[in-house]
Simulated assay, not measured.
Amino acid sequence: MGIRKAKVEDCKQISLLLNQLDYPDTELLIKEKVEKFLMDPNEVLLVFEEDKTVIALISLHFIPQLAVNGDFARISYFAVDDNSRGHGIGRKIEEHCTDLALKRNCNRMEVHCHSRRKDAHKFYLRQGFIESPKYFIKMLPETN
């Protein structure tokens, strides 16, 4: 089938893919998160389906910019099943998202990719990304 918008019915397979990215135990919160993504016009959650099985996912956020021309598109989660890597699926998904970003007046795509994900770094460099080394994060207290 290829690339399509995610559905709530995909939650179990999405959770399994997130587990491969070292995000365990997402099955408890994934349904609520997927529903939230599907309702937000600035969020896109896509999956790649093959033989009725979700084997990849990407979440893309469109971020309007105030002081510069063009907006940003940010990849927050991108996973291709361990057994399906190396077959061009990630490239197809990233290129599809690039097209979506251009249609949304974005002039930049960005992704934060942990330093331990060496193979992912190689993938992003092949796709035309450049490294931008500063990234700051501030943890906030949970509100739940």
Rank of each mutant, 00 (worst) to 15 (best):
E49F: 01
Y124N: 08
E95C: 03
K134I: 12
M109P: 08
Q127L: 04
V44Q: 10
N83R: 12
L100N: 07
D25F: 01
M109R: 11
E110P: 02
V8H: 09
L102E: 14
T53C: 12
V111Q: 08
A120G: 08
G88A: 03
R117A: 05
L60E: 07
E110D: 13
N42W: 12
M39T: 04
E9T: 10
N42K: 07
N69P: 08
R126T: 09
S15R: 06
D22P: 06
K134W: 02
K33S: 06
L57M: 15
F37Y: 12
N107D: 15
Q127R: 03
H61W: 00
H96F: 13
M1C: 10
A6Q: 04
E27G: 04
F136L: 14
K7P: 05
A67Y: 15
Q20T: 05
D71W: 03
G88Q: 07
G70N: 07
A6E: 05
L46R: 08
I137A: 14
R108P: 05
V54T: 09
A67Q: 11
R74T: 02
E9G: 09
A101D: 13
A120P: 10
E35Y: 01
A56V: 01
I137E: 15
H96C: 09
F72I: 14
A120V: 02
L46I: 12
K118Q: 09
G88N: 07
L38M: 08
I3M: 09
F62T: 11
C106L: 04
I14F: 09
V47L: 10
H121W: 02
R116S: 13
S132P: 03
L66P: 06
D71N: 15
D71E: 10
M39R: 12
K134G: 06
L66M: 13
H112F: 05
K5A: 03
F136N: 11
G86L: 04
D81Q: 09
D25V: 00
P133W: 01
H61D: 12
I55R: 11
L16D: 15
I137D: 13
V47A: 10
D40A: 03
E35D: 11
H61Y: 00
G90F: 02
A56F: 03
N107W: 05
L29T: 12
L46S: 12
Q13E: 15
K31W: 01
T26G: 04
I58V: 10
V47F: 11
E110T: 05
V68P: 10
R126W: 00
K33Y: 01
K33R: 11
H61P: 03
Y23D: 11
L60P: 06
M109E: 14
L28A: 15
D119H: 03
F62M: 09
Q65N: 13
V111F: 01
K118G: 01
L29Q: 13
I14H: 07
E35T: 07
L100D: 07
I3E: 08
K7W: 00
V80N: 05
T143P: 04
V68T: 15
Y77R: 03
G70S: 05
N144E: 14
K118A: 03
G90W: 03
P133H: 02
A67E: 11
D51E: 15
V54G: 06
D82K: 10
S84V: 02
P133E: 00
R117H: 06
E110N: 06
N19A: 10
M109S: 10
H114S: 09
L57R: 05
